[in-house]
């Protein structure tokens, strides 16, 4: 068994309205920053022990499928690093 950190990033699917990101963008513009767009995402860092990086990836992906993301509105990706 090896120790890994699986980072799951959950973001809204392309085209799904993100009012929080829009509000944040406007707040930055009010501060005088120039920007064209802003997207936000949730990031989960999961420490786990697994036989291999592949197994860790699989387990974290299942966590994303079953709870962390809502497939109706979200896409997600998983990155595994040694810990």
């Amino acid at each position: 068994m090896s120790a890994y950190t699986a980072t799951v990033t959950v973001r809204l699917k392309h085209g799904v309205l993100d009012p929080e990101a829009e509000t944040t963008k406007q707040a930055l513009q009010r501060l005088g920053f120039e920007l064209e767009g802003l997207r936000s995402a949730d990031r989960f860092e999961i420490d786990l022990e697994a036989e291999s990086a592949e197994v860790a990836h699989e387990r974290a992906s299942e966590m994303a499928e079953r709870l962390l993301a809502n497939p109706t509105i979200h896409d997600y990706d998983v990155e595994v690093t040694d810990r």
């Binding site: 929080e20 809502n70 109706t72």
Partner: peptide
């Protein structure tokens, strides 16, 4: 209901935030 799959779709942040 939507999160559990009883009904389709999702309810998310209001347009007004």
């Amino acid at each position: 209901g939507c999160e559990s799959g009883l009904t389709p779709g999702a309810f998310t942040t209001n347009r007004s935030a």
